[in-house]
């Protein structure tokens, strides 16, 4: 039974986009927490832990996200752990994000000049005070643009989870497209929704940068 692409389908797509957002949000929180650990392991002066972090980063950045998704979705059941599409998607996107966040944040932290540490020390600030009041505020400002840049990639990459059957925006589009045989309006609608999400994110970044007086 072929039907027309109608208003109800648009609602359906928007509802599916909630899963896109929720997945991106989960990966941001999960990947963000893990990313802090990765960044810290990269900078502390204890080699074995740094190597571990570097190996983690290379493994994740050097393999396709789709492969990682398949490993979790098809691989975990082989060792007796049954996972649904949501769990596999959330897990692999979080791990994927952790490598990128870790590197972005380490870079931001290290791009604050050593002289800023020294200026804080010369005023009698403790290490924690230097970190918290001098270096971190600057590192956070520096990290806004690349962090949001990666978030935009993350939102778009959630579409890969359609391939393990997770019904987010892209999978929903496939379903409606199959029912209406009207791929063009369906995928255009989906594209507009992706664009609105990503554009809002980059506007948010600009606003934050202005508010936080990013050093030029």
């Amino acid at each position: 039974m072929i039907r027309e692409f109608a208003g109800a389908d648009i609602i359906y797509l928007i509802e599916a986009a909630r899963w896109t957002l929720l997945l991106a949000l989960t990966a941001t929180v999960g990947g963000g927490l893990l990313g802090i650990v990765v960044a810290v392991l990269r900078v502390i002066p204890f080699r074995p832990l740094s190597w571990l972090a570097i190996a983690w980063i290379n493994l994740i950045q050097g393999t396709p996200l789709l492969g990682q998704l398949f490993v979790f979705f098809f691989g975990l059941p082989l060792v007796g752990l049954s996972v649904d599409a949501w769990t596999a998607a959330a897990l692999s996107l979080s791990i994927y994000a952790s490598a990128f966040f870790g590197e972005i944040w380490r870079g931001s932290l290290q791009s604050v000049s050593q002289r800023q540490w020294e200026a804080g020390a010369a005023l009698g600030l403790t290490y924690a005070q230097r970190l918290g009041h001098v270096v971190l505020p600057q590192a956070i400002r520096i990290s806004i643009a690349p962090t949001v840049g990666f978030l935009v990639q993350l939102v778009k990459n959630t579409s890969l989870t359609a391939l393990i059957g997770f019904v987010e925006l892209t999978r929903a589009s496939q379903i409606i497209s199959g029912a209406t045989f009207a791929p063009l309006p369906v995928y255009l609608t989906a594209a507009v929704i992706y664009f609105v999400i990503c554009f809002s994110l980059s506007q948010l970044a600009h606003m934050l940068e202005r508010r936080l007086h990013v050093a030029r």
Partner: peptide
């Protein structure tokens, strides 16, 4: 106690090193 020392001995650098934020 280096932090106490540095309260007694202030230092100004060639590159100013103000906190830009």
């Amino acid at each position: 106690d280096l932090n106490l020392l540095r309260q007694r001995a202030g230092m100004v650098f060639q590159s100013y090193n103000l906190f830009p934020h």
